[in-house]
Design a protein around this nucleic acid. Structure first.
Length: 160
DNA sequence: GCCAACGTTGGC
DNA sequence: GCCAACGTTGGC
């Protein structure tokens, strides 16, 4: 089982929006980057995802979601009315894929990008690499557990 | 196949 | 709102 991180701008689609979806599940549409697409094509049902809020006042991992489908063609690429429409995409040769994503939990205390940068135990974390713009990326087992434990510690502190 | 121009991402 | 970093496009 692999672990992942997916970015979303909360003004567009936040973790609260995901929680309110039918079955708390939604298509992760609009990814138009080949590397990110390829990662989604590797995803297996049930794999865990950090839900990251980007391009906002406090960029942060705000909770956990899970992969709810294998990758399939993103329907918005064929829809001329969608902002994600792609003229070059053909029905019989789709360019873009997506997976369904299901809400798992929202953390009581988010783990901010600033906080992540202070975690010296994180190794080779793509999110922290300079100039990183990838919206879907793998997370190593070690980094996943480090961050989850840190989030739990923050939650305990907040309760105390 | 190179690379300049352009558009986008996303932290600050 | 700024701008650095990056990916994509298209002329040659």
């Amino acid at each position: 089982m692999a672990f992942w991180l997916m970015k979303s701008e909360p003004e567009t689609f936040s973790i609260d929006d995901l929680r309110k979806c039918p079955n708390q599940t939604e298509r992760w549409d609009g990814v138009r980057n080949y590397q990110a697409r390829n990662f989604m094509r590797q995803m297996q049902i049930g794999e865990q995802i950090f839900f990251y809020h980007s391009n906002t006042k406090i960029p942060a991992i705000v909770g956990v979601a899970e992969v709810a489908s294998l990758a399939y063609p993103d329907p918005t690429q064929f829809d001329p009315n969608s902002p994600y429409f792609d003229v070059k995409a053909q029905i019989d040769a789709p360019r873009w894929s997506l997976v369904d994503v299901r809400f798992v939990e929202k953390w009581s205390v988010a783990v901010s990008l600033t906080a992540l940068k202070t975690l010296s135990t994180l190794t080779d974390f793509a999110l922290l690499k300079k100039g990183n713009r990838l919206s879907v990326m793998p997370v190593s087992d070690e980094n996943w557990h480090t961050i989850v434990q840190y989030a739990q510690a923050l939650a305990r502190q907040a309760r105390a």
